[in-house]
């Protein structure tokens, strides 16, 4: 039991980036744009954060926060491609998302080769330092993102408009909402959050960016969006569950009772649970009705 309690800081460390990215994915899908580029955008964020932090000395806590900021901006900028393709050009959202994932994998390692002359960023001396109780600030950032997402989606007029764009864009447009603008904002926010998530991951869990840093965290976030039924508390719960599974897969060697199970048992959980729940809930429409469909204004 003590071993499990001792794992809480590690679990929160793994959960935070997944939760932040999943909030981004949820916001985008609630506005009607599926963003399967979360994985790639997290990579962009992680690379940007690691590079910023190293180039600024790699040992100060102040530059950790600068790095979080640059990663957020980088994620938003790259997601502009996805927004332009899927909102302005009505392109297939899965195709442009796939393109960004491929592009992210290539461009981050390419830039690492140019800047650091190796296929990874230079390691930094000191990443983010944990606060009281061994808990990283990323956990509080994740909480803040969760609270803000819920507040904006459900307590602000903008949130109502955003959800309308994902459920029935034609009706939203008829009510005078600028569907394209709302969708642009949603995609950019999801990009910014994915970038931030990548930064949180790299600055707490490792000491440099490599092409294996993200390792599926973005796709787990995507799974959390479906499993959490596109609701803030559901997605947060899913991120907590999936992040714990990822943490258990890594730290289970320390826990006597779990050693009988293979580590793959926990690794596979997020994906398996998501498929099973999608089957169980099939027929009940939880997904935003217009997610994935381009919106073409009639008469333009």
């Amino acid at each position: 039991m003590n071993e499990l309690l001792g794992m809480i800081p590690s679990v929160l460390m793994m959960v935070s980036p997944i939760l932040i990215a999943a909030m981004g994915g949820m916001i985008s899908e609630r506005a009607g744009i599926v963003n399967i580029a979360l994985e790639g955008l997290m990579g962009i964020g992680a690379f940007t954060a690691a590079t910023t932090h190293v180039l600024l000395g790699g040992e100060f806590q102040a530059t950790v926060w600068v790095a979080l900021g640059t990663a957020l901006v980088a994620g938003a900028l790259i997601s502009l491609i996805h927004a332009y393709a899927s909102v302005s050009l009505n392109a297939d959202q899965v195709v442009s998302g796939t393109g960004i994932n491929l592009l992210a994998m290539g461009s981050t390692v390419f830039l690492a080769q140019i800047i650091f002359h190796q296929e990874r960023t230079e390691p930094y001396k000191l990443g983010m330092l944990p606060g009281p109780g061994g808990i990283y600030a990323t956990a509080y950032i994740a909480l803040a993102v969760l609270a803000a997402s819920w507040y904006v989606l459900y307590r602000r007029p903008f949130g109502l408009r955003l959800r309308a764009c994902g459920e029935h864009p034609a009706a939203a447009a008829a009510a005078g909402i600028d569907v394209r603008k709302v969708r642009y904002i949603a995609v950019l926010v999801s990009g910014a959050l994915a970038g931030l998530a990548g930064a949180c991951l790299v600055l707490t869990q490792t000491i440099q960016y490599t092409m294996y840093t993200i390792n599926g965290a973005g796709f787990i976030a995507l799974a959390a969006v479906s499993f959490g039924r596109w609701l803030p508390k559901g997605v947060a719960g899913a991120a907590l569950l999936f992040g714990s599974a990822v943490a258990l897969a890594i730290y289970m060697v320390n826990i006597q009772a779990l050693r009988v199970l293979p580590p793959e048992f926990f690794s596979v959980m997020p994906y398996l649970i998501t498929i099973v729940t999608l089957v169980l809930f099939s027929g009940k429409d939880y997904a935003p009705r217009a997610a994935g469909q381009p919106f073409e204004k009639s008469g333009s």
């Binding site: 050009l89 796939t98 393109g99 491929l102 592009l103 290539g106 390692v109």
Partner: peptide, 22 residues
């Protein structure tokens, strides 16, 4: 030549194809 330029080209090609409707 950093070999990842080939991945960048692949990624760009896919992005351009998604822009085709545009």
């Amino acid at each position: 030549i950093p070999k990842e330029v080939t991945w960048i080209i692949s990624g760009l090609v896919v992005v351009f194809i998604s822009l085709r409707t545009g």
